[in-house]
Amino acid sequence: MSLYYVQKYLYQLNRDPAVQGAYRSDPVAAVTSFGRDGQVATLTDEEIVALTAPDIGLLYHLGVNGQILMHFAAFHGIEWTDYLQRMRQGLRDHGPVREGVYALTTDL
């Protein structure tokens, strides 16, 4: 579990066209080169899958800040209501948000 580095990768992706280009051409290579084994920023298999699928619901469950996640969803062209639905589905599939201040406050 390395939520900080998941968010750091997304922060860089959201703002940097070069990072976006690498991700678009080969998301698995781009993400694993950021967080490969042995680096400080080692990502778990679960996190790599969430970032590369992309699995918006799993990222939300893991605790990715909503503002970072919203920009990532927009980058993928995910329509607004679909974005909200994917987060809800993530909670159904994986359980409540693990950490952070963007947890659900209403009934699922």
Binding site: Y60, G66, Q67, L69, M70, L84, M87, R88, L91, Y102, A103, L104, T105, T106, L108
Partner: peptide
């Protein structure tokens, strides 16, 4: 507001 969450709109 509760932006960028499933509560968006609350």
């Amino acid at each position: 507001h509760w932006p960028a969450t499933p509560d968006s709109g609350k």
